[in-house]
Every structure is written in structure tokens, then in C-alpha cells.
Design a protein around this nucleic acid. Structure first.
Lengths: 262, 262
DNA sequence: CGCAATGTTGATAACAATCAAGCTCGGTGG
DNA sequence: CCACCGAGCTTGATTGTTATCAACATTGCG
């Protein structure tokens, strides 16, 4: 049975341990509901806006769940694309790998988000999706989803929305990578995480990073040392409180000012 | 009547003038065909893969064309989203503008590409689409497109593909912005343009940039001075021949080596 | 013909990367 | 239970890339 954690408090406050595995997993819905109808992410995932009758049919399709352990891949670069995934609990990173072995992280994924959308067109995955902690996804066969969408306008629309918002998200990151200083990038990242956790029902100003400094820097296009220095500086200046991966945002206003209202 | 230009030779070779307006527009199909059936971009745009009967219905939908003069906007940040656009001729940039007035270019668009996809989910445009030269687009009302897609699997699939490949494209740019040196960014950009022109039936190693150094640098996340210096250096090293916006790639192999096989 | 926009090149400065050392914490094994 | 080990994190010193500031060149247009 899954451990219950209180909302608005995604990590224990007193003397919390540091290692990732020591933090409670990111589980928006403590009850391990199997049906979409009783899933806490219903309003966020593809199922949003479906009538109860439609939801039942969609449920059929997304019935199959899959657990992915920390460090394991949901899919890998080169795999043929057959299914989309909806993240139920846990967290993932998307990683591109060059022939030289350089890794580049293009995204972090929280519960309620779809994985695999970028592979529809080429028909193959171009990235690895690696679990940052023990996670669970709903498996959604794409061919059947397509067929269902054709007869269910609300679902078709949700799919378009999901794809479109992936594009928006990426363009936001492009702004970040292409025109912000290291300081602005980190501030923007913390603010964006804050919003995402809030949407999931967690606190907007206290959360636990799911990734290492190395992964974070990789994603932001800066080195892990720079991330570390900036965290320290933000703390010195009273913007945040940092204890390893536990983050508390103390002055969201000033963080936004740093980013400069992009 | 539109001016005819030879394929594989998108700019005149001898003593070409510099200003954009002096170059012939980017017009893959010299005949100003109105129907999709006779459009040279048929294999590239949404209409790809439709039967002739389906094409006729789609044609109805995309019948309306719109001309946009150089410097004018097709849509602006904040506009409500109602239609998608397929670029027939010319070129666009997508520009995000912050409250401080900083501009950030998130994409350049060539004929055959769709504009407006990122606005589906929020229902409003988050960027300006500005014509880099006199251009023409097909106007596609989204609500009707959605309805048509529901009854036309091939079209639905094309829409999914278009959305998905936008995501891929953005992620490619994120790799570029997040983990490449200025030199690698420019090389990668030139190679990517080369591929895109080739797909349109133009030469892969001779083309004309549609944007200023400023816009190019903005897009790549580097300054216009750096762009200029790198162009000069690439030329000194025999990688390319540059005369203002006319580019000839002399050593694609070495350019690819620079980028490092991302 | 001269002006405004665009592009090139040089000198200097700033930011972030790299290299390097040491610290913290949690897991592991004696 | 304690000591040690290693992954992850922090901090400092130095270097290098690219931004910034500045001057000048080119070209197309009015």
C-alpha cells in the first residue's frame, strides 16, 4: 500500500535526509486508484473534460499501468513509437545523447504530464525517458487513441491541447536558454517548478528538487558549479532557503524581478 | 503575376544586391496555384497523404489566402487563436516580446510549414509572427479543421504529425542553445537551413539568408557581432563563402564535424 | 548624394567554464 | 554501532569565450 503524504507538504520538515530515495515519492494521489474516474490527475491529463461515459471508454484504453524504477528508462532513443504515457506518480527526465556520449536533458516531467509526444511524427523516440525516482505511468496505445479521438471530439481536442502545450513549454525554455544569464535561468526554473507543483496541489514555495545539481545545470545549459554557487548566493540574499534538494522560496517577487517578466 | 525563378538557384549569382527586398522572394511554386491539388507544397503541408477526394474537401477549408507584407505581422501576441496558417511563399519569424521590450526570436519559418500551432492550447497567441519578406499564407479555420479531422483519419494524423514535429524541432533548438558553443550554433544553423531548403527543392549548398545578422544572433542566443565574426572565420577557413546574406557551403563535412554529430 | 540600416572588425570587460580541493551525508560492511 | 567510502555538493583560483563598447565600411533608397 502506498504511503500517504500530506498535500502542501511534499517533504518532511524536520531533519530531512538528503538522498533522493529518502524523500517520499512524488505521489499526488495517495490512493493508488486504477480507474481514471478516481484519479486525482483527472483534471490535468488527457482525460480532462470527458463525460463520464467517454471517460469509461478512455479508461479501457489507458488501463494498463507500468512501474519504472529510479534510473530505469521508460523508452530509449531509437525505440519505435507505439504508445504514449501519462505520468501518474514519480518524475522523469528526457535525455538526448550524442555519439560523443554527451548527455543533454531537454525536460523534466511531473505527474499529469504526457511522455512520448515528440515521437509521433518520426515514429521513433529521439530521446531517453529516465525515471528520477520510482514512478508509475499509464500506457496508452497510440493507434487506438487516434481511432478513439476520431469519434470523441473532446478527446481529440485534449490531444491537440497536450501537443500544443508541449510546444509552448519548449518555446519557454528556448527563451530561457537563448537569452538569459545563469542567474535568470535558475530563478526562472525555480519559479516554473513552483507553478507546476502548485498545479498538482503541492505548496508553491516549498518543494524538493527531483534532480541532481548536475542534471539541473545540464538542463539549464550551465555547469553544476554555477548552479551550486547561485543557490548559495540566492540563499545569502534571502531569496530562498536551500538545504541540499529542499527548496523554500522566500521572496518570489524578487525572483520574478530577476527574471525580468519574460 | 508572380516572377518565375529557377529551382536550385534561389538567388541570382552575379553581383547580387544586398537588401532583402532585392532578392527574389522565396517562392517554391512559381505558378500561383490556388488549389491544393496543384500546389508544389502538397507533399509537405497538412494536405500530405490525402486522397484526391479528401484533398478537395480540405481545399474548401484552406481556400482563403492572405498576403502579408515584409515587416507586417500575421498575428500578434495576445491575439485570440482561431486559425492555423500554412506558409505558401515567403518567410516568417516568431518573436516573443517581454515587458522590457527585449525581443527573442524562437523560430524562422519557410514555405510548407505551419504557423500558429503553439496557440491551440492556450487559445491565444503568445508570439508575434512577422514576415521577413512579402509572403502568402493559406488560412485554415481551426474549429472546422478539427471537425474535418474527426471524419478524416489521414488529416487527423497529419495534424498530429505537424504538432509533433514542431516539438522535435524545438527540442533540437534546445540542444543547440543549451549545450553548444557559438561556433557550433552557427554551423548547426547553416546545416539545418541547408536541409530545409533542399526539402523545398532548392540547392542544399547555396542559399540566401532571409534574416539580418541581428535576428540570426538573437535566435541563436549570441550577439550580432559574434555572428559576423564567425561568418568571417568560417570563410577564412574555407568552410563557407559569404557575401552578405548569400551563403555557399563549401565543406559540409567539416561543418558537421564542428557540430559534433548531435 | 547623403542618410539610415546593416554588417565588419578591434579593444576591453564580464560572466561562466574549468580545474582543483575539501565537505556532507547516507549507505555499507566490519 | 561505528568507520569508511563514494556520490553529490560547495567553494576557491584561474582561464577562456563571448558580450559590450566603439569605430568604421557597405549598400540600398529617398
Amino acid at each position: 500500500m502506498l504511503q500517504t503524504i500530506a498535500l502542501n507538504q511534499p517533504f518532511p520538515i524536520a531533519r530531512a535526509p538528503v538522498r533522493t530515495s529518502a524523500y517520499p515519492r512524488l505521489v499526488p494521489d495517495a490512493r493508488s486508484a486504477v480507474a481514471c474516474a478516481s484519479c486525482s490527475l483527472q483534471g490535468i491529463c488527457l482525460a480532462a473534460g470527458l463525460s463520464s461515459k467517454e471517460l469509461a471508454r478512455f479508461d479501457q484504453l489507458a488501463m494498463h499501468k507500468r512501474k519504472v524504477n529510479r534510473g530505469a528508462a521508460l523508452y530509449r532513443n531509437g525505440d519505435t513509437f507505439e504508445t504514449l504515457y501519462a505520468l501518474r506518480s514519480g518524475a522523469f527526465k528526457s535525455v538526448g545523447i550524442s555519439r560523443e556520449g554527451n548527455e543533454k536533458i531537454t525536460g523534466f516531467h511531473l505527474p499529469g504530464e504526457m511522455l512520448g509526444l515528440e515521437a509521433i511524427s518520426p515514429g521513433r523516440h529521439a530521446y531517453d525517458a529516465v525515471a528520477l525516482e520510482d514512478s508509475e505511468v499509464c500506457v496508452i496505445p497510440f493507434a487506438e487513441l487516434e481511432a478513439l479521438a476520431a469519434s470523441m471530439p473532446a478527446l481529440q481536442r485534449q490531444l491537440f491541447r497536450a501537443l500544443s502545450s508541449d510546444i509552448s513549454r519548449d518555446q519557454g525554455l528556448m527563451l530561457l536558454l537563448g537569452s538569459m544569464s545563469a542567474e535568470q535561468r535558475l530563478a526562472a526554473f525555480l519559479l516554473s517548478l513552483s507553478r507546476r507543483y502548485q498545479r498538482l496541489g503541492f505548496s508553491a514555495n516549498r518543494f524538493v528538487l527531483r534532480m541532481t545539481r548536475d542534471e539541473l545545470g545540464n538542463y539549464l545549459g550551465i555547469t553544476l558549479e554555477t548552479v551550486s554557487r547561485l543557490m548559495s548566493r540566492f540563499q545569502r540574499e534571502g531569496l530562498v532557503s536551500v538545504r541540499q534538494r529542499e527548496i523554500e522560496l522566500n521572496d518570489i517577487e524578487r525572483l520574478m524581478a530577476l527574471v525580468g517578466h519574460w
